[in-house]
Design a protein around this nucleic acid. Structure first.
Lengths: 141, 141
DNA sequence: TATTGTTATACTCTATAACTATA
DNA sequence: TATAGTTATAGAGTATAACAATA
């Protein structure tokens, strides 16, 4: 009887490959997005482009960033004049975040670019492979 | 003729889902790894466990982190006594990183845990789906 | 001189924990 | 008690620039 030696090949671990795939995507994103926005920043702009206004924490939930992280994202967007914040008159805990006209215009201009970034990221795959990758990633997220 | 309206659904963008899948994996990793190591730190320990010694930049290339990032990773591991650094006597530019006895023992103890973390991350998938996900991720990394 | 490696600096994202304020 | 938000702290990733050593 042979005792199976425990093997752990870093190259085949899902976390390691996931990190590399994310790295490549972020590189494509930052090289291709002329507006100097990071992926989370663009995600926030996207949601606000659709909803107009929402609370800071709710925005964080929609773009999958926690309360501490979304604060930094919103602060940086506000500093650039792309969003505004104001306390909710109905609930003093809430901080309402809304998109500015500048932010709205930026979203409309660069949504096409974002779609191209997705296409570039998926370029090595065939159409059915792209669909399958999204399906599998959604299952493990 | 109908003009196709441009749609950009954040939920379906590969970058957005990739970020969420990575987040879930990192969460599993940090909750399950008793040794309080991050994924890049554990990757570095793994490589050094196999190779014993390598230059700092080479280590970075092997675990897919650039020169500036690997320096921080190595510094933190050195502070914990898991690795040591020394200038290469043959090439004064190189900083050789080697694993300590403590680091070696830690690697041997926790490689099984790391394998379990991979399994937990992939738990929502069937065996053929796991294989396919790895194949597709490797193509876009 | 060109290349490689290291280091310093700055900015962003992420997560946790502790805290305040409100419902 | 539960929720929303803020702040502090820490690790990581990224980019750029400066510097040292080597080819």
């Amino acid at each position: 009887m042979t005792k199976t030696k425990q093997t752990y090949v870093l190259e085949d671990q899902v976390g390691f490959i996931l990190r590399q795939a994310s790295q490549r995507h972020v590189t494509i994103f930052s090289k291709s997005m002329p507006a100097d926005l990071t992926p989370p920043q663009f995600s926030a702009i996207c949601i606000l482009h659709q909803k107009g206004t929402c609370s800071q924490n709710q925005l964080g939930r929609l773009i999958a960033t926690d309360a501490a992280t979304i604060k930094g994202v919103v602060d940086r967007l506000a500093k650039r004049g792309l969003v505004q914040t104001a306390p909710d008159p109905d609930d003093g805990r809430m901080l309402l975040v809304s998109i500015t006209k500048t932010g709205q215009e930026l979203a409309e201009t660069y949504i096409a670019t974002a779609a191209q970034i997705t296409a570039m990221t998926l370029a090595p795959l065939t159409a059915p492979e792209r669909k399958e990758l999204l399906r599998l990633l959604k299952k493990i997220r």
